[in-house]
Write a protein that binds this DNA or RNA. Structure first.
Length: 290
DNA sequence: CACTTGACCTGTCCGC
DNA sequence: TGCGGACAGGTCAAGT
C-alpha cells in the first residue's frame, strides 16, 4: 500500500531521525525479508554510519558510510518505524499511531544504533524486503534499472507522460499508470484519485486519450501526489510514518474507498469495479466509459 | 511480443 | 461460534 507519498513521508522522517547514527547491531528472522549473509552484514552494516536517506519510486534507500546502502521495498504492508532508546508505547499508545510496543509479531528486522535507538522493519505479509547493496549498484537493481521517471521532478511534463504512455497504446489507462516502467511511484490509490481528477474512465485505452486529456492527467497526478505528501500519506490499514503515525490523505480522497458515496463534483454514487486486477473506484457520470 | 492473470503472504471480514 | 472463501494490492513469473 505504500506508494510514492507514503515512502516520501518516511524518507523525510528518517532523514531527521537517523542521519549520523552508527549501526551497532542487526537482527532479522526471515531470509525473505532480509536475505543478506551474516558476513556481509558484519562487514558493511555493523559500525557503518547513516549518511543520507533517499527515495526512488516506492523504494527507500539508506546510504551508509563504507559504500553500502540499505535498500527497502515496503510492498503492501511494510512499515519502517524509528524508536528512541526511551520511547516505546504500551497499552495506551496515542490514537494517531497504529502500533504499540515494538518489536511485535510482524517485526522482521531490527537495526539498533549506538545511542540505543532502533529502526524496526515490520511487514505483516512478508512481501517486502530490506537488502544491503553496494551503493554504486543500487540503481542497477532489477526494479530500479527499469523504473520510469519521477512524477514530482521538474522534468515531468505532459509531453513526457505522453511519450511514456505511447509505448502502451492498448493498455487501459489505469493499468498503464500502475506500470512502474511507465511512471514511478503511482499505486492503486493515487491512480484512482488522479483519473477522477482528470475525468477519465480508468478502463479507457491509452490510444484513445487526446493530448488535452493527457495534459490534464499529468497535472492531476502532480496535484494528488503533492497533496498526499502534505497530508502525510494515506493510511488504509497498515501504513505509518517513521514515527509510527498514520497519514490523513484518505479523509481528502474523492473516490478511493468511497463506493456508494456521492461524487464530490456531481453527487452521483461512486462505483467500484475490478480493473487490471485491482479494486477501481470512479464516478460513472464524470468519468463515463467510452 | 503485448497484455492478463496468478503467486507470493497474513489478517480481516462476510455469509452460512 | 466456527469455518471457508473472498479480499486487500506491489511486483514478478507464468500463461494466453
Amino acid at each position: 500500500m505504500p506508494e510514492l507519498p507514503e515512502v516520501e513521508t518516511i524518507k523525510s522522517g528518517l532523514s531527521k531521525l537517523i542521519v549520523n547514527k552508527t549501526v551497532r547491531q542487526v537482527t532479522a528472522d526471515n531470509p525473505k525479508s532480509f536475505p543478506n549473509s551474516e558476513d556481509l552484514v558484519q562487514h558493511y552494516l555493523i559500525n557503518a554510519e547513516v549518511i543520507s536517506v533517499q527515495r526512488r519510486a516506492k523504494v527507500l534507500i539508506i546510504n551508509l558510510s563504507g559504500d553500502y546502502s540499505l535498500v527497502t521495498h515496503l510492498k503492501m504492508t511494510g512499515q519502517l518505524v524509528y524508536r528512541s532508546r526511551t520511547a516505546n508505547f504500551g497499552a495506551g499508545h496515542p490514537t494517531d499511531s497504529l502500533i504499540g510496543e515494538l518489536p511485535d509479531k510482524s517485526t522482521r528486522v531490527i537495526v539498533s544504533f549506538s545511542d540505543g535507538s532502533k529502526l524496526f522493519f515490520n511487514d505483516q505479509r512478508k512481501f517486502g524486503w530490506m537488502c544491503l547493496v553496494a551503493t554504486s549498484d543500487v540503481m542497477k537493481m532489477d526494479f530500479l534499472s527499469k523504473v520510469g521517471p519521477e512524477p514530482l521532478e521538474s522534468g515531468f511534463t505532459w509531453q513526457v507522460l505522453r511519450d511514456r504512455l505511447a509505448k502502451h497504446p492498448n493498455l487501459p489507462i489505469k493499468a498503464a499508470l500502475l506500470n512502474q516502467t511507465v511512471l514511478a511511484g503511482i499505486g492503486n490509490i493515487y491512480a484512482d484519485e488522479s483519473l477522477w481528477g482528470a475525468k477519465i474512465y480508468p478502463g479507457r485505452l491509452v490510444k484513445t486519450l487526446s493530448a488535452r486529456k493527457i495534459h490534464r492527467l499529468r497535472d492531476e497526478i502532480v496535484f494528488v501526489l503533492g497533496l498526499a505528501i502534505q497530508k502525510g500519506g494515506s493510511t488504509d490499514k497498515n501504513y505509518v510514518d517513521a514515527e509510527g503515525k498514520k497519514g490523513s490523505y484518505l479523509s481528502f480522497a474523492r473516490v478511493f474507498r468511497r463506493e456508494h458515496q456521492p461524487c464530490p463534483r456531481c453527487g452521483a454514487a461512486i462505483k467500484k469495479i475490478r480493473l487490471a486486477g485491482r479494486g477501481t473506484h470512479f464516478c460513472p457520470v464524470c468519468q463515463p466509459p467510452r
